[in-house]
């Protein structure tokens, strides 16, 4: 769907479904220099299984207009504005990498609107190396090249994709290359400067799921440990042999963890 948020044309993938006020909503938030398509399989599943789905393109990313925002708090306010624009009061949020920080900050700022929070490939805090900050500031292609290697497990760099005929390394490179100049650096600035993560974790009231890749070099699992212990109600699913690109490296395992976390359980007939 295409809508206006804070005066900018904004795109959210809905899995071909019109919004249904009777259904719960899941918001999927992508990471740095990515767009909604990183959630293709998972978001489509929920759209066809009893949920409204908003897999957003963040401002300045994908099909959404506006400048890229360079801090997590502003992104969180944007998520609230998005929900207002769509007219929903509550949603579950699933975020990857930078998107996980945005989800976390949204849950801390607006506890009443976030029902559940899934953090996929997260580190709290999420420092970014000087090499990546510098190369991204210079819009140097080397930044994408570094990310592409760091963000895929050794196995994923060889391939054997579950999605027939898709070459993961090529896909993720081409997706990043679509970003306008400055977008990656703004995203990394947002990640690097976000200091409130552990406080936000303590403030978060809703159930939290962390899905981590055991071989993730971008957001290594140990970097999520302290935060995981700071939530009042959090569970961690660790995916063996998986790098930072969890949704493409292990699409079914990520989906199964999300289904288990988000699907209403023990629904009793009225």
């Amino acid at each position: 769907m295409s809508l206006e948020v804070n005066g900018h044309k904004t795109y959210a993938y809905t899995g071909n479904h019109a919004f249904d006020a009777c259904l719960p909503t899941v918001i999927f938030i992508h990471g740095a220099a990515n767009d909604h398509s990183v959630w293709a399989l998972q978001s489509r599943y929920f759209a066809y299984h009893g949920h409204n789905v908003l897999a957003v393109d963040l401002p300045g990313h994908g099909k959404s207009a506006g400048d890229a925002l360079n801090d997590v708090a502003t992104f969180a306010d944007w998520v609230k504005a998005l929900m207002d624009a769509v007219g929903i009061e509550q949603a579950a949020i699933v975020g990857h990498s930078m998107g996980s920080l945005i989800g976390l900050e949204t849950a801390a700022r607006y506890p009443a609107i976030v029902t559940r929070l899934a953090l996929v490939g997260t580190a709290i805090p999420m420092p970014v190396t000087d090499a990546l900050l510098e190369t991204s500031a210079a819009n140097d292609h080397a930044a994408y090249e570094m990310i592409n290697v760091f963000a895929h497990s050794p196995r994923a760099q060889i391939g054997g994709n579950r999605l027939p005929g898709a070459w993961m390394m090529g896909n993720s490179m081409r997706l990043m290359e679509r970003s306008a100049n400055g977008v990656l650096h703004a995203d990394f600035t947002a990640c690097n400067s976000y200091r409130g993560g552990l406080d936000a974790a303590k403030k978060t009231k809703c159930p939290v799921l962390l899905i981590l890749g055991q071989r993730d070099l971008m957001t290594p699992p140990r970097a999520a440990k302290e935060a995981a212990a700071s939530f009042s109600n959090a569970r961690t699913v660790m995916l063996d042999g998986t790098g930072h690109s969890l949704m493409s490296e292990q699409p079914d395992a990520v989906l199964d963890a999300l289904i288990d976390f988000l699907r209403p359980k023990n629904v009793t007939a009225a």
């Binding site: 399989l41 391939g159 994709n161 027939p164 699409p251 079914d252």
Partner: peptide
């Protein structure tokens, strides 16, 4: 919604490996 194979006209694991290899 899930990745995998249904029928070998559409996709097949051996073909998929070849497809990925040429793409790489």
């Amino acid at each position: 919604e899930r990745a995998g194979h249904v029928y070998s006209r559409i996709s097949n694991p051996t073909n998929a490996a070849l497809e990925e290899r040429i793409a790489a």
